[in-house]
Write a protein that binds this DNA or RNA. Structure first.
Length: 465
RNA sequence: GACCCCUUCGUCUAUCGGUUAGGACACCUGGUUUUCAUCCAGGAAAGAGGAGUUCGAUUCUCCUAGGGGUCGCCA
């Protein structure tokens, strides 16, 4: 295919989900491989009750944040209702659709029989199409599509391969509701056709919809696009990724301090991998050249936050991404305060601790220790005699350091240890505790550098032998 | 329940009939280190089960089991 016209068509009934983001990502990657290709964005808001402007904005900004750009202005599906109805009318006139007045009870009754296996055909309305009275009604009806029952339909899916379904399995679904509004099933086909979409990449929860939607294309004599139904992402328990699996909305990951690069790297490795020997750390421009949708696995994969953490740690450690940390700090209430107070200090903390964290959010608690001007040691630790003996001398040593530089402090401490014939932990551990309330952490020289001379001495000085 | 899809280390995956079944994350061990970490080196860890096709099956076919998806006047 030389010109790939794709689309991402979310419904604005919730924030941008990791799974949807992956679908958008794969669409973006595929279209980016070919010149003159397009990725359109369409907001499918035909469910008026659940659609919200707020969600639409969240989706747009989430995609932008990830670096997934679309062509043209986002299309709003509800703006095309008249066009959708025009097609419904054509189908009706051509005898490819019919008016139906079945009551909810009748439908439920029939559905029960279908589900229990008493009836083999999925067609839910059997009488209205033949009823001329119903067909001449002016209002108060739904429009259903006509689907034959003979033989079977075959889909050659780019990802799923050949899929066969008997026509008897395909239902006479609703195109236009009783209130005169078009359903998703109608709108999606009309809009895709009008946009010239020729390659549809969507979640495989839509696989069955192909067999329903293809009839509109056929009846209208429209060219049927190529389909790629990609497997869904699952949570740790193997079911469709959802809220109970943790943060599944992009906005939540952003708030926690995950990087777009890490999320993209993580997502693309679900169901796909680079060729043998190639690095799994891989960025968008390389993914675009290496990725091929034909290689995508058919089976669903489980989303792992641990692996995301690995990638995020990798990317946030990179010098070039320091700016992202600063931007993040501006958007985080706690870090914002520290940034205003002493940007240099916050950056120093970040640079020393970045190897230990998997997301920016973790810096909040760390920074709190260093920015707390009323710092108190948590408990009255009793240190070893050896430490107590040399404590005052050590304090004096630190007091006498004039050039508060890493190398200077470092060599002063080393000399001190040598002179007093001490092993590092004797001094280091208690001092680290006095400075940070923690026996583990960065080298005490690093801690001294973060705190500065005055605050460092203030903290150590509180200890009385 | 019906229909469709899936099934290689705990997780993500490689393998396009012949491999000591490879890698990554996580985990464990050792080394370096100013503690914890980082870093480096090593380790444990997999073809759901059963038939067939074949000289030979993880790979092809079928059955079973397990998992997932769909079954709305939602999208």
């Amino acid at each position: 295919m030389t010109k790939m016209i794709t689309r991402f068509a979310p419904s604005p009934t919730g924030n941008l989900h990791i799974g949807s983001a992956r679908t958008a990502l794969i669409n973006y990657i595929c279209k980016s491989k070919y010149n003159d290709s397009k990725l359109y964005l369409r907001i499918e808001d035909t469910d008026k009750d659940r659609s919200k402007e707020e969600f639409k904005n969240n989706i747009l900004s989430g995609l932008k944040w990830l670096g997934i750009n679309w062509d043209n202005e986002p299309q709003i599906q509800s703006h095309n209702i008249n066009r959708h109805l025009e097609i419904a009318n054509k189908l009706l006139v051509n005898g490819n659709a019919f008016k139906c007045v079945c009551s909810e009870e009748e439908l439920n009754e029939r559905r029960k029989k279908i589900n229990s296996g008493d009836i083999t055909s999925k067609k839910i309305c059997i009488s209205c199409a033949k009823n001329t009275e119903v067909q001449s009604l002016e209002k108060n009806y739904v429009i259903r599509i006509k689907i034959p029952i003979d033989n079977k339909e075959i889909l050659e899916d780019v990802v799923q391969g050949t899929v066969e379904v008997n026509k008897s399995e395909i239902d006479d679904y609703v195109l236009v509701r009783r209130d005169g509004t078009p359903t998703y099933m109608l709108s999606v086909v009309v809009d895709d056709h009008d946009l010239g979409v020729n390659f549809i990449i969507r979640g495989d929860d839509h696989l069955n919809n192909y067999f329903r939607q293809k009839f509109i294309y056929e009846y209208m004599n429209w060219e049927i696009p190529t389909y790629a139904h990609i497997p869904l992402i699952h949570g740790e328990d193997g079911s469709k990724l959802s809220k109970r699996h943790g943060a599944v909305n992009l906005i939540d990951l952003k708030k926690q301090g995950y990087l777009p690069e890490a999320i993209i790297n993580n997502l693309i490795l679900l169901g796909w991998s680079p060729k043998k020997g190639d690095d799994e750390i891989i960025q968008l421009n390389n993914i675009i050249s290496m990725f091929n949708i034909n290689d995508l696995s058919k089976s669903a994969s489980i989303f792992s936050y641990k692996k995301l953490d690995f990638f995020n740690n990798y990317y946030l450690r990179q010098e070039k991404n320091l700016e992202l940390f600063i931007n993040y700090s501006k958007s985080n209430i706690n870090l914002q305060k520290y940034l205003d107070k002493d940007e240099e200090k916050l950056i120093r903390i970040f640079n020393i601790y970045k190897k230990d964290i998997s997301k920016y959010e973790e810096i909040v608690n760390i920074a709190e220790i260093y920015f707390n001007s009323n710092f108190e040691v948590l408990k009255n630790e009793i240190f070893e005699q050896e430490f107590n003996k040399c404590f005052n001398n050590f304090l004096e040593l630190i007091n006498n350091i004039k050039d508060w530089e890493y190398d200077v402090i470092n060599s002063e401490i080393k000399d001190f240890l040598k002179k007093n014939n001490l092993k590092f932990p004797i001094i280091g551990k208690p001092v680290r505790f006095l400075l940070t309330n923690n026996y583990n952490g960065p080298s005490i020289t690093d801690i001294f550098m973060i705190l500065g001379k005055v605050e460092s001495i203030k903290r150590i000085n509180k200890y009385k032998v």
